[in-house]
Every structure is written in structure tokens, then in C-alpha cells.
Write a protein that binds this DNA or RNA. Structure first.
Lengths: 245, 245
DNA sequence: CAGTGGTCTAGACCACATA
DNA sequence: ATGTGGTCTAGACCACTGT
């Protein structure tokens, strides 16, 4: 019931109790107290230590867990996470957004946009039968007239029946598909490879120039939506990201 | 006060109310109700609709926000997120863990481990003065005798004074540094490039073979810890990850 | 001002693990 | 039986935004 906030004073507002608990545990963890896997204070102990209700402790601990710093097991306790096993998170920005963020102009050139019969590989990754209809686009994306990405994409017609009706010089396939199917899961793989002859030609690079190749498969509501092969000239494109525990 | 859980029966336990609210909103979002930026139901409306207390609604909404699906603004309301602007999250696993997970053996060959005077570039990224002492290791990592990564690393002595005392055939630099400084932030960049002559030799590949090059800079407690250049043969290495909203 | 989200409390019942 | 975390309630006060 007690309220600890400063009264009429103009002091900087005190940090929220849940945030203080969280920061305290973060500090102790960063100092190496509680090696990975070791038991940390229980909810009850933190309630007593910080003179706070249990919901407040729970919130701090749940957020730490969401950040991967601790593990909680019902009936057992709270433990420091095995950080080496914590995967880093790399943030990948949409190419269109990235170009705009740099204050440049994004242009797209559509080299192909048609319905085709699904090959075996495409059918498998989109959950279709071989020979079924599939939409296929091949688009090169430019940043101020510099080719940055060659996007070879196949789309499941069941997920986006009007896909081919879009003007892809005005809206990117990614943007359109996000409208049609707002939520999805994606699986990525990223590798370095040499471009195919056609990709080299479309990107205006040599066949020996290394490229960053991103393969992405997207599933929404349990239904495969699209697969894409995104080829970027290595000398022009950089994936960037950060990891914050 | 009312408890809705099934009594003595052995029915599958009902989903937690906060989880039901969360799932309901997720479903509606995925169906395209509330286009990006549009106002969603307020806390009070959800309280009335689901007959739960406000804490329960708050939890569901806070988790959706943490997942990047909604935005909440104090004094204004709750809104559907602009998904196109939501960056994808790519999970990067530690190489050592990845090799073990595949059931293979990890071997490391140390080609260099010594203290050096910091060059200008190294000094800048580690926050040192040019010519100051810096630790430098060059290690090649193998998965069952196949070279997978060439790790060229510089370490700030202030963050890990005993770094050079490690046996890097038994513990990876990453593992050791995680022990010494358990929490950190990292900035990545990933690009495709050709290996240097030395890297090609150490990895046993040709100079024309494209490589995935990861640059990583790590900072802990506000102090730079280490920078690393990780070179992977493109034909042997694949970064994989997934994104789940 | 009314309406919104941000946070907290002092309980409570539950499922689960261990002994 | 005890102790752990998981979840929920019915309030409450606060800060902020817009009218």
C-alpha cells in the first residue's frame, strides 16, 4: 500500500521497483556471482530482500528469462543461464527500409513475373505437388542505380492469389506479402557463394565476385507462403546486427 | 476470486487466461484486422471482454509488445505494429556448440597467441591508445578435421588479463571470455569476401573461394572486450536462423 | 477533464519437485 | 510436507495525452 514515489519534488523519478530488481540481478550476474547453472535467490527471498510484493519479483524474473539470462523451473528454482549456449540475435532489416533510412532512392526492375509449374524443389518447400501452379518473380533492387540485391522468389498462390497483379516497382514483394499475410515465421540460411551467370549479369558483377546469399522460407498460419533466394554482391552489401543480453 | 480450473477431473488443463487473450489477439492480427498503426482495444475493453483482471490483460499485451507485434503508448493507446519495420531476428549459434550438437568433434589449432602493440585500427575498436599492449590470437577451428573457421582475435588486456594463459585447444576464446566477463553486447557485421592468402592457406581453400566473414565487436560493462574476424569457407559453412513473431 | 497505459499490493490457489 | 515457480484477483495510485 505504501507509495515510495517522491512527493511534490522535481527530483528524477525513482526507477520502478521491478526495474531495480532486474538491474540488481543483472549486475550480480555480470560480476560472475552464480556461475552458469547455479541456483539464484528464490522468489520468496527476493520478496523479503526488496520489501516488495511477489508479482513485482515475478515480473523482474520473467523479463530476465525472456532475455535468456536466467532459467526458471517450476518446483525447483531459478538458475543462472548457460550463456555460452545462448544464441546471439542478429537483427536483419528489410532492404527497402534500409535504403530509405540511408536517405537514398529504392528502385526495382522486374525481369520476370509469371505463373509456372512447380519444379520438384519448389513444390517441396512450398508444400505443393510437382507441376502445380506457382508464382515466380525475379526482381533486381537498386539503391540509387547501384544493384544491391537479386531477388528470385516463388509464391504459393493459395496464400496470395493476386500476387502477380502487383506493380513491384511500387511495392516490394515483402511489403505486399506482409499485407496479405501479416504474421509469419521464417527460416533463414546465409552463406557465401558465387553468383550464377544470370545473377552476375543482372547485378553487373563478375562471376568470380563473392556474394552473400540469403535463402528464406516463410510460413504463415501453418501454410507455406513463399521462398526466396536473395543474392547480394559481397562488396556492396553488409548484414549488420547486434546482440544485447 | 473465482477459479475456473477443472476440479478433480482429468481433462486437459484449460489454457491460462493471459495466454488465451494473447492468442486471440495474435489470431486477429494475423487475419489482418487492425492494419499496421491502427488502434486496438484498450486495456479496459479487454478486461470487460474477457472478464479478467487488468493485470492479466497487461501481461498478455506486454508479451505481445516484447515480441514486436504491438505498440503501446501511455496516455494514447495500443496499436498494431508496423510489421514491415520489424527487423527479423537471426539466431547465431556458437560454433563450438554447433559442432557438438551435430555429434562431431571440435579441434582447434593455435597459430598465434601473443601480446602485441596495438595498431591504429585495433586501438580504435578496443578503446586503447596506439601502441598499447593487446593480446592477439589466430586460431583455426576444425569439425572432424575439416577447417570451418579462421578466428583472428584481439583482446583488451584490461578485460581479460590472463587471456594468453589459456589452452585454446581445450577451451574456445569465446567460452573463456564469457567466464571472465559474463555479460556483454556485441555488434556484428556479415559479408561475403575472398580470403586473404594466409586465410586461404590455413583453411585449405583456394583464393577464389568465397567466404562468409563475420566481424564482431564485444563490449562488457561499458568496456571493450574483444574484436574478432571470423572467416568461414562459404561452401562449408551456413548460418541458419529463424524468425517467429 | 476523461481516458489511456505503467506499476504496485497482499493476498490466493495451483502444479510440480524433492524428500 | 515443504518449498518452488505459475498464475490470478480487485483493487489502487501514478504519468501521460488529448479535448
Amino acid at each position: 500500500m505504501t507509495r515510495r514515489t517522491t512527493p511534490g519534488s522535481r527530483l528524477p523519478r525513482a526507477a520502478a521497483p521491478y526495474a531495480r530488481i532486474k538491474q540488481h540481478l543483472k549486475n550480480e550476474l555480470s560480476r560472475g556471482r552464480w556461475p552458469p547453472g547455479e541456483a539464484m535467490p528464490s522468489d520468496a527471498e527476493l520478496v523479503a530482500q526488496f520489501r516488495v510484493s511477489r508479482m513485482t519479483v515475478t515480473r523482474a524474473l520473467n523479463e530476465l528469462r525472456a532475455e535468456g539470462l536466467i532459467e526458471r523451473v517450476q518446483g525447483v528454482g531459478t538458475f543462472a543461464a548457460h550463456l555460452a549456449r545462448v544464441a546471439s540475435q542478429l537483427r536483419i532489416r528489410d532492404l527497402h527500409e534500409e535504403i530509405l533510412a540511408r536517405g537514398h532512392r529504392h528502385r526495382a526492375r522486374v525481369h520476370l513475373a509469371r505463373a509456372e509449374a512447380a519444379s520438384e524443389g519448389v513444390a517441396r518447400s512450398l508444400g505443393l505437388t510437382v507441376g502445380a501452379q506457382v508464382f515466380h518473380t525475379l526482381i533486381v533492387h537498386f539503391e540509387d542505380d547501384v544493384a544491391l540485391q537479386c531477388e528470385d522468389r516463388h509464391v504459393n498462390p493459395a496464400s496470395a492469389p493476386d500476387y502477380l497483379g502487383c506493380d513491384f516497382t511500387r511495392i516490394t514483394p515483402t511489403q505486399y506479402l506482409l499485407q496479405v499475410a501479416p504474421l509469419w515465421e521464417a527460416r533463414y540460411s546465409i552463406e557465401a557463394a558465387l553468383p550464377s551467370a544470370r545473377e552476375a549479369r543482372l547485378l553487373g558483377i563478375g562471376r568470380g565476385d563473392p556474394c552473400l546469399v540469403v535463402q528464406r522460407r516463410t510460413v504463415g498460419n501453418g501454410r507455406p507462403i513463399t521462398t526466396a533466394r536473395l543474392v547480394h554482391p559481397g562488396a556492396r552489401y553488409l548484414l549488420q546486427g547486434e546482440f544485447k543480453p
